[in-house]
Design a protein around this nucleic acid. Sequence first.
DNA 1: CTCACTATGTTGTATATACAACCTTGTGCC
DNA 2: GGCACAAGGTTGTATATACAACATAGTGAG
Lengths: 150, 150
Amino acid sequence: MEREMTQTTARRIAKDCLAVRVRLLNRVVTGVYDDVLRPLGIKVSQLNVLVVVANYDSPTPTKIGKVLHMEKSTLSRNVDRMVARGWLRIATGKDVRTHRVTITPKGRALLEKSLPLWQQAQEESEALLGERVTRAVCQAADRIWADGKS
Amino acid sequence: MEREMTQTTARRIAKDCLAVRVRLLNRVVTGVYDDVLRPLGIKVSQLNVLVVVANYDSPTPTKIGKVLHMEKSTLSRNVDRMVARGWLRIATGKDVRTHRVTITPKGRALLEKSLPLWQQAQEESEALLGERVTRAVCQAADRIWADGKS
DNA sequence: CTCACTATGTTGTATATACAACCTTGTGCC
DNA sequence: GGCACAAGGTTGTATATACAACATAGTGAG
C-alpha cells in the first residue's frame, strides 16, 4: 500500500466527510451546554430527556427513544440514572411490559432552575454557529422529526 | 412546582434547543456511516482518527485531539484500541513525553477499503440532510477549525 | 543551577451510546 | 384455546466521551 494513495484517500475523506463535521459540532456544542449547566449537576443529555418527559404525557421509554432517535437500551440506562437521582419516576400500567416515565417534583424544580442557564448556553451556541447554521440545523432536525411521524 | 410552569419551560427549551438538534443529527448521521462501514469492522469515529493520522505527518495524540476537539484522555484510549487492532503504531521521540502516532500498512489497507463505503454513506447522509444543511454544517466546522488556527 | 511552571500522557470514574441476546407479555390467526 | 409472532424492556459487552487527579519531563526566570 503506497503512501501517495493513502494520502489521496485521506484527503478525499477529510475534505468532505459529513460525519467528522457533525460529530465535531456535537462535541463542541454539547461542551458549551455542559459547561454552563455544571453547577446544577445535570448535563444537556439528561436535560433533553427531562424536557421530552415533561412535554409528552408520561411517555414510555420507547417513545422517548423514538423522539430522540436513541436505542431503547440507551434510554433504559439513562432513565435509570435519572430515577436514581430522583428526577424521574417509573410507573407500570395494565400492560406490565410498558413503563410510563414521569417527572418528579424534584425533576420539575431542576428543570426550572435550568432554564436561565440553558438560555445562556443557547445564546453562546447560536453565536458560535452563526444564524445561518443555526437555522439549517433546526431545519434538518425538524425534517427528521417530520419523517418519523409520517 | 406547578404543572403549567413545567410545561411552559419544557416547551420553551424543546422549541429552540440547539443541543438536542445537534445531538440528534450526530446520532443519525453517525448511524448511517457505522451501518455502512460495519462489514469492515471499523466505525466512523475510528476512521476519522485514521484520516487525521494519514493527513498530518505522524501527529501526537494532542495534535489529533486539537483537530477533532477531543479530550486528550479520550484520544489516549481511542488510539490504544486502534493500536491493539494493528491500524496504528506509537513511536517515542527525543522528548520522552511526546508520542507520535503512525498509520501501519494494515491501517492503510483498511483506509483504502473504506473509501467506497465511506462514499456511499456520504451520499446517503447528504441526501438525508439536504444540500443546504450539508453546506451549512461544513461551513460551521470550517469556522471552528479556522478559529483553532488563529 | 534550581525551582516553579507548563506540556504531555495515563488512569480512575462516570455517563452516553449501540448491538445482540434474552425474557416477558400481548395479539392475531387458525 | 394454542401457538407463532410482535412489542417492550433489560442485560452483557464494547466503544466513545469527558473531568479530575496524577506522573513525568521539559523550560525559563532568578
